[in-house]
Amino acid sequence: MDNLKAIIEALIFVSDVPVTSSRIEGVLEDVKEKEISFAINDLIREYEERSGGIFLKEVAGGYQFRTGEAVGSWVQKLKGQKQASLSPAAMETLAVVAYRQPVMRSEVEKVRGVDISGTLRGLLEKNLIRIVGRKDVPGRPMIYGTTGKFLETFGLKTLSDLPTLREFKELGE
């Protein structure tokens, strides 16, 4: 297929969530997996080389177009509203869930030393974390983990793509 790259580019362009390569394979029935991944990598490189306002990124197990960091403030201005970022408290709860998952609420509260019901609810509503099950102990407390939306929001391919706690420590110092 000689316009393979163009097709893939269009498929990723129209999608609102990161497009997985298996979904692309599903659309392009007869094309080999390898050809598709070559084409995607080609596209990623082309956008990198062009170094324009848009980049193709691998996030949350799929591919997605996003604006470059350098133009972020201008896009912000166009959109008009100031995008609410997470509060420091919510970010702390999210960090504990992300690094300790699957984790119970009581474990997060022990680390943070405060009640986390408010931040937990906010993160659930924003779909950054989710309930992954219940622990088999008295009271059957719920256990939490991060979502695909979390990976998408922080631009991570997979959870193993998260910087290690040590890396954060070194950056902070």
Partner: peptide, 12 residues
């Protein structure tokens, strides 16, 4: 520190 680190990442 991890929370501050996450906050420094490029957030969608």
């Amino acid at each position: 520190e991890a929370a501050l680190g996450l906050d420094r990442m490029n957030i969608l």
